[in-house]
């Protein structure tokens, strides 16, 4: 029975086998996975995962301690509501590329917040080279505002040399 849901956050230096070791330990203790995000960020492997089980938080921490330490990871636990099957469909996608400089994310997302845009998913990356870094960001979200209004809100950034594309996401269902 899955009574309690937790969001586990695990971070450590990337190496092969982390996911296998951690998920095996969870499985052996009767824990279920919900939605997860696992990816390498700048040489670190990062995991955020919904985990459900009968365990209380202290018990969960104690059970996972050996595997977390063996993998050289750090663990953070939050009790959460396990709200599965509630995906929200994005209707707007915003893509941003530009020379890396401080404040791009803050400026773009401030402009989006002003038009009532709710971010569902944001991925950003630093591409290019150490001498010439390029910031690339993709944002998927929901907004009632028409695309023209979102475009207008981002216009100032364009004048500042940041390439911003706003596209409607028409999800094909078939």
């Amino acid at each position: 029975m899955t009574n309690n849901w937790y969001m586990l956050t695990l971070i450590g230096e990337d190496k092969p086998g982390i996911v296998a070791a951690v998920t095996q330990a969870l499985f052996e203790r009767g824990l279920n996975l919900g939605e997860t995000s696992m990816l390498r960020l700048g040489g670190n492997f990062t995991i955020m995962m919904m985990v459900g089980g009968v365990q209380q938080e202290d018990e969960l921490r104690a059970q996972l301690k050996p595997v977390i330490e063996a993998q050289g990871m750090r663990l953070h636990v939050d009790a959460i509501q396990g709200r599965l099957h509630e995906h929200v469909l994005p209707n707007i996608q915003v893509t941003v590329t530009g020379a890396d400089r401080a404040g791009i994310v803050a400026q773009v997302t401030a402009a989006l917040t002003d038009v009532g845009f709710n971010i569902l998913d944001l991925e950003s990356d630093v591409a290019g080279t150490a001498h010439k870094p390029v910031y690339i960001m993709q944002i998927a979200g929901v907004a009632d505002a028409p695309i023209e209004k979102i475009e207008a809100a981002l216009e100032a950034l364009r004048k500042d040399g940041v390439d911003v594309n706003v596209n409607a996401v028409d999800t094909y269902i078939g």
């Binding site: 509630e86 995906h87 469909l89 994005p90 996401v169 028409d170 999800t171 094909y172 269902i173 078939g174």
Partner: peptide, 12 residues
């Protein structure tokens, strides 16, 4: 492009 499916509920 984004897709979903009647045969795969709640996933795109």
């Amino acid at each position: 492009g984004r897709e979903g499916c009647l045969s795969v509920p709640d996933y795109t």
